[in-house]
Amino acid sequence: MSKFKILYAEDDETLAFLTKDNLELNDYAVTHCHNGEHCLEAFRSGSFDICILDIMMPKIDGFELAVEIRKIDHHIPIIFLSAKTLKEDRIKGLRLGADDYLVKPFSIEELLLKIEVFLKRSQKKSIPEKERYTVGGFEFDADNYSLVKADKKTVLTQREAELLKLFLDNKNTVLKREQILTSLWGNDDYFMGRSLDVFISRLRKILSEEKEIGIENLHGIGFKFTVKE
């Protein structure tokens, strides 16, 4: 199983070295960026399981960076590490979508514990129990893998049905390619990725007569199932 991937933004070189070293000793794969601009570029081009962000950084500060990350991914855990100790700063960080806020100097043990907790939570994120959906002119029965429009019924494969359900549970939200592969197959290897492309092409073809529905390919990121309501 591949290591969890951490995106870490910190402009203090000494602190960054020590933190990155400790995270890697605990078997995390860490991408470190010295400023917010480089961090945002890395996030857009890569795939990560959690973000750890300093606030006072050059180019783009941590608050603005969190806003941009949340535009791309609504679910990835974000932890702020900051010397800002005011309650107002903590509240601002959490309102911007952070999952937690640690004040410097922080305990590496506490950081590791929080990372573990948030990764477990994100990996086990509950999927709504809804099994029947209406999307455009289609009625989708996830239990029976059937997609019906008027008198026309299409029976999907199990994987196709699971993929469509995942899209509908997260409609109008960006899903990273790795998220989809892990949700459906438990890993994100190359061959599963090719299978995913086939399933998406088939779903696009089936749903193509509904102009209000689309599966948008976000190059280097993933897919977005769009429904105009």
Results as ranks from 00 to 15, higher is better:
residue 9 A to F: 02
residue 10 E to R: 01
residue 10 E to Q: 06
residue 20 K to T: 07
residue 20 K to A: 04
residue 21 D to A: 13
residue 23 L to W: 04
residue 25 L to R: 15
residue 26 N to T: 08
residue 27 D to L: 09
residue 31 T to V: 09
residue 35 N to H: 05
residue 36 G to I: 01
residue 37 E to V: 13
residue 37 E to N: 13
residue 38 H to A: 07
residue 38 H to V: 07
residue 42 A to V: 08
residue 43 F to P: 00
residue 45 S to W: 13
residue 45 S to G: 13
residue 48 F to Y: 13
residue 49 D to W: 14
residue 49 D to I: 12
residue 50 I to G: 01
residue 53 L to R: 00
residue 53 L to I: 09
residue 55 I to S: 03
residue 55 I to A: 02
residue 57 M to A: 11
residue 59 K to D: 09
residue 59 K to T: 03
residue 60 I to W: 11
residue 61 D to M: 11
residue 62 G to P: 00
residue 67 V to G: 05
residue 67 V to T: 11
residue 68 E to N: 06
residue 68 E to W: 00
residue 71 K to I: 00
residue 73 D to W: 03
residue 73 D to Y: 03
residue 74 H to Y: 09
residue 77 P to V: 10
residue 78 I to M: 01
residue 78 I to H: 00
residue 80 F to Y: 10
residue 81 L to N: 00
residue 82 S to C: 01
residue 82 S to M: 00
residue 83 A to Q: 06
residue 84 K to F: 07
residue 90 R to H: 07
residue 92 K to N: 06
residue 93 G to N: 02
residue 94 L to K: 04
residue 95 R to D: 13
residue 97 G to H: 07
residue 98 A to S: 06
residue 99 D to E: 10
residue 100 D to N: 12
residue 102 L to I: 01
residue 111 L to F: 10
residue 112 L to P: 06
residue 113 L to Q: 06
residue 113 L to R: 10
residue 115 I to F: 08
residue 115 I to R: 02
residue 115 I to P: 02
residue 120 K to M: 15
residue 123 Q to K: 06
residue 125 K to E: 12
residue 127 I to Y: 12
residue 129 E to D: 13
residue 130 K to E: 13
residue 130 K to L: 09
residue 132 R to W: 08
residue 132 R to C: 15
residue 133 Y to D: 08
residue 133 Y to H: 11
residue 135 V to K: 06
residue 136 G to M: 01
residue 138 F to G: 04
residue 138 F to I: 03
residue 139 E to L: 14
residue 143 D to Q: 10
residue 143 D to L: 13
residue 145 Y to R: 14
residue 148 V to G: 06
residue 149 K to G: 03
residue 150 A to F: 07
residue 150 A to H: 05
residue 151 D to Q: 05
residue 151 D to S: 05
residue 152 K to Q: 09
